[in-house]
Design a protein around this nucleic acid. Structure first.
Length: 567
RNA sequence: CGGAGCGUGGCGCAGUCUGGUAGCGCACUCGACUGGGGGUCGAGAGGUCCCGCGUUCGAAUCGCGGCGCUCCGACCA
């Protein structure tokens, strides 16, 4: 490809709205052009990278026997009503109507549709197991698209779905997908870590995310520095400090004028925070819920939501707090009626806690579970924080941020039951298939590849995803010797199976070098009178500082070597 | 949805406070020179100043309403 013919426009300066390095470079290098919030056009250059990522994924999925399919993006609304997710996914669904006023949604994912497809193919346990996958567009009406390709409203996802006769064989399908993902990210030059993730109220057993660690990520991850435990903040478990022990003492009210915070309460009474009880109020599916945890801990709302099996959970606003007669800052479950109480184990086990008296400026000492109050649900609802103790080994947890690249789930039978994916087992009994699902965000992956592979001058593509292998800069291409050398070099490289980009534009050398750095092909060759005089062509791997002159005939071999190193 | 900022040629910005014929740099076109890190000179083209309503003799500028974009948060199987 010659740059004089390539539809690309590089920018000296990035648009003001772009902040992330990947976003700025995607725009500056001319890989994409914005259309609207969360929507981008890919240029020929950008699309080549996208396709190379796609192909890596396709190869690794095919390698373990997953089968590629294609599904509609447009789904009848009833499909989503059948699974119940029309309600739970709610506002994220793009809705539209056809000319006969029939309602459709644009698929944000494809569990429902793939289940319908699978259900029509499965009759016997002999038909199982298998894994289907698709690489196609998904639509989500995100509340806030952001970060260039990090969060889009229309995006490519590789989504795979496994169908197994039982949980045991699902473990194998899951493992196959997991291993394929490790190979995919390895090949794409993207360091990721697998972290335990929440599988949601929707159910399922195991769930892991593949996360690329970066400060600009939106996912919060807890990492244990001693045992390697890694979990999404929604899922992370901690070892909670032991309570202050003691025999149950008589309940006693104490005046606490103006005290409304745990820190203030502990200081006022000269106690530790773990000797107090904290209360937080929520509306779960619209119903009031009283959450209670020991004062030194915070509530993990995902865990709380799971404990409640609620589809929505929100913190009560002031009006709701008032309406339900709660006293913020002095609330406790003692004497509380009219709502469910969910308590963390710590609040149940610790004796003689200080809790609110359910009136202003007063608290209760020596509150004990069982005697003074009772939890409707007792569960672990504690939030892991930076510095907390690892649940597995007691080591120190550190909070890191990252971008979720992929998510693997053991779904179980939820969709097979609602969408009708059944088979007859060896006993002739009708069973729902046990499903798993495995998604990778393509554009997000592309953005992360750039986040990981760039320097102050531009992109430094890993060889496996670069749009071209070699970028040939021509200087004084109008001179006959130079033109001749270029033609030979180009055909030698192409004969060696290399993807060649030639900057044949009539621009100054400086402009071409800057663009070559910005666009970031793994190897740059310069054909010029000077290099010819020096005995060949100038050879410079993008990630190295120094260039050297090599005989032109050796270029293809040297490029191959450099590509092998540019991972 | 809450908080903040921004909207002027393709990109980066000035002009807005204090109303008076829209400007700079880059990019673009043509010509010449130059030819190893976004080069020089000359001549050009390109604008619903986000939209609407209002105030005014006169609005990019003031007022009201709306839209869009970005960031933070909420949200995000």
């Amino acid at each position: 490809m010659h740059m004089s013919k390539l539809m690309v426009k590089t920018l000296r300066e990035a648009p003001a709205e772009a902040e992330l390095p990947s976003h700025r470079l995607l725009l500056r290098a001319g890989l994409m052009v914005p259309l609207a919030a969360g929507l981008y056009c890919f240029t020929p250059l950008g699309w080549k990278v996208h396709q190379r990522l796609e192909n890596i994924i396709r190869e690794e999925m095919d390698r373990y026997g997953a089968q590629e399919i294609h599904l509609p993006a447009l789904h009848p609304l009833e499909t989503w009503e059948q699974s119940g997710r029309a309600a739970t996914m709610g506002p994220i669904l793009f809705h539209l109507r056809d000319r006969r006023e029939r309602e459709f949604v644009l698929g944000p994912t494809h569990e429902e549709v793939v289940s319908i497809l699978a259900g029509r193919s499965i009759q016997s346990y002999r038909d199982l197991p298998f894994t289907l996958y698709q690489i196609q567009t998904k639509f989500r009406d995100e509340p806030r698209p952001r970060g260039g390709l990090i969060r889009l409203r229309e995006f490519y996802m590789k989504d795979a779905y496994s169908f197994d006769p039982d949980w045991e064989t699902l473990d194998h399908s899951y493992r196959d997908a997991f291993d394929a993902y490790l190979r995919i990210f390895e090949r794409a030059g993207l360091p990721v870590i697998a972290v335990e993730a929440d599988s949601g109220a929707i159910g399922g057993k195991d769930s892991q995310e593949f996360v690329y660690l970066t400060e600009s990520g939106e996912d919060e991850i807890l990492l244990c520095d001693s045992c390697g435990y890694a979990a999404n903040a929604e899922k992370a478990n901690i070892q909670k400090p032991a309570p202050v022990p003691g025999e149950a003492l008589p309940l006693e009210e104490v005046a606490t004028p103006g005290v409304t915070t745990i820190a203030g309460l502990a200081e006022f009474l000269g106690l530790e925070e773990r000797q107090t009880a904290k209360a937080v109020f929520y509306l779960a599916d619209g119903e009031p819920v009283f959450a209670c945890i020991r004062g030194d801990l915070d509530v993990n709302e995902t865990k709380l939501q799971n404990a409640l099996k609620a589809t929505t959970l929100e913190v009560m606003d002031e009006a709701a707090v008032k309406k339900h007669g709660l006293i913020a800052g002095s609330a406790s479950a003692v004497g509380l009626t009219g709502m469910r109480v969910v308590a963390d184990e710590t609040a149940v086990e610790a004796p003689n806690l200080v809790a609110g008296a359910n009136k202003d400026d007063a608290h209760l000492r020596n509150v004990n579970h069982g005697r003074d109050w009772r939890a409707d649900i007792t569960a672990d609802i504690a939030l892991a924080r930076d510095g907390d103790a690892c649940a597995k080994c007691g080591g120190r947890l550190t909070v890191r941020r990252g971008i979720e690249m992929a998510h693997v789930f053991k779904l179980g039978t939820m969709y097979s039951e609602s969408m009708g994916v059944h088979f007859l087992d060896e006993q002739g009994e009708r069973q729902p298939a046990v499903m798993g699902c495995y998604g990778i965000g393509l554009e997000r992956m592309l953005a992360a590849v750039i986040e990981e592979n760039h320097d102050e001058n531009g992109i430094t593509w890993p060889a496996a995803v670069a749009p071209f292998d070699v970028h040939i800069v021509v200087i004084n291409g109008d001179q006959a010797e130079v033109a001749e050398a270029l033609a030979q070099l180009e055909s030698d490289c192409e004969a060696a199976g290399l993807r060649v980009l030639v900057d044949d534009r009539d621009d100054s050398p400086g402009t071409k070098f800057k663009d070559a750095d910005l666009m970031g092909m793994p190897v740059r060759l310069t054909v010029s009178p000077r290099a010819l005089k020096g005995g060949g062509v100038e050879f410079k791997p993008r990630r190295e500082a120094e260039a050297r002159v090599i005989p032109a005939g050796e270029a293809p071999g040297e490029i191959r070597t450099a590509l092998a190193e540019a991972r």
